[in-house]
């Protein structure tokens, strides 16, 4: 499967995606927030510095909001990473969350992880698992992660091959299990090791995730019993109606019903805890966004003069108005959704 960009799909265009979302007959997201006194939405502080180091990926998942894949070439340069590190040195932002694409495919990835750790930051990496087996040069990633105390956040949309492979590609489940075993072998998911392995569940279709409380025991039981896999937590994440998932929704006639479902499940408690309130997201080219989803829709932080890592202004960013659009309903449905799973505990 090719990325939407390689297919020259209309939905590879951010403006067109926003147009589709705006044209849908559901209440304005900003009006919903206003009803609960949350508009304009402001940050509560910046605790997470999320770096999207590129759109290159070894997989082409059906739901990918990045439209990542092997045909994408946009990756963060070492120079931009150095600018990020300079910001991290200047400010006490505790956590660096590295994502992609497959972030490991960026040639400066290991250097970046070590540099963040040397600066005392907690480092999370969003690993698609299969990258570890994609090429011999990635085989030692579990040891590298363990040596650097990286928190590994791994996608695994279901505990069986059928649903996982339908979303992520044939053979992905089998490879994912093999890599989870490799991570377990170096101590990940083992009590007392200090090495944290969290799994990410996201629905393989046009439906919302059940609560983490419902899903986590099922994952723990099946992965433990059938495959001997250990993990720390399961994060349940809602699929955002943008990019490739939006394409899926429209192609299958599920788009309007999905949007209505998101709207009917709007939860003001989740809205108050959305991740854009404690996160700043840096794109591969150094531009700043409220979250990875806004990044993919090219919705840069409000003030253009302060919208790049070169002009990073923490004081401004902590007081900014978060940029909102209709896709934001994806983060406020039910128990809410963020890169750390549910937000309304």
């Amino acid at each position: 499967m090719k990325s939407l960009k390689a297919q020259r799909s209309e939905l590879a265009n951010e403006v067109y995606q926003l147009h589709v979302l705006e044209e849908t007959a559901v209440p304005k997201f900003s009006d919903q927030l206003a009803t609960f006194g949350l508009y304009p939405l402001h940050p509560t502080g910046i605790e997470v510095f999320q770096m999207n180091v590129g759109k290159m990926c070894n997989q082409t998942c059906q739901h990918c909001h990045v439209d990542a894949g092997p045909d994408r070439r946009e990756i963060m340069t070492r120079e931009t990473m150095e600018q990020c590190l300079a910001v991290l040195e200047r400010h006490p932002i505790p956590t660096v969350d590295i994502t992609g694409g497959a972030p490991e495919m960026n040639p400066h990835f290991r250097w970046l992880v070590e540099a963040c750790r040397q600066r005392g930051k907690k480092v999370m990496v969003r690993c698609n698992l299969t990258i570890v087996l994609a090429n011999p040069k990635y085989r030692d990633l579990p040891e590298f992660y363990a040596a650097n105390g990286v928190e590994v956040v791994s996608s695994l949309p279901f505990y069986n091959a059928d649903r996982t492979d339908r979303q992520r590609g044939k053979g992905v489940f089998e490879d994912s299990i093999a890599v989870l075993r490799m991570l377990n072998a170096v101590g990940y998911g083992t009590e007392g090791s200090g090495l944290v392995l969290n799994l990410v569940y996201n629905p393989a279709g046009a439906f919302l995730p059940a609560s983490q409380q419902t899903l986590e025991p099922q994952f723990r039981k099946v992965l433990g019993k059938e495959f001997g896999i250990r993990f720390n937590q399961l994060y349940a994440i809602t699929n955002m109606p943008i990019s490739r998932f939006l394409d899926f929704l429209i192609r299958t006639g599920n788009y309007e019903a999905y949007m209505e479902r998101l709207v009917s499940a709007f939860n003001p408690v989740a809205a108050a805890g959305v991740m854009c309130r404690n996160t700043i997201s840096v794109g591969w080219d150094g531009f700043l966004y409220d979250c990875d989803f806004n990044q993919m829709l090219d919705l840069k932080v409000g003030n253009a003069s302060k919208g790049h890592i070169q002009s990073f202004d923490l004081d401004y960013l902590e007081k900014r108005d978060v940029v909102l659009a209709q896709h934001c309903y994806g983060c406020t449905a039910g128990a809410g959704s963020s890169c750390g799973g549910e937000v309304a505990k």
Binding site: F158, D162, P203, F207, A210, T214, Q218
Partner: peptide, 11 residues
């Protein structure tokens, strides 16, 4: 059907 799917019930 949707509710079961959401709750992780397999086909």
């Amino acid at each position: 059907t949707v509710d079961c799917t959401e709750k992780g019930v397999t086909e």
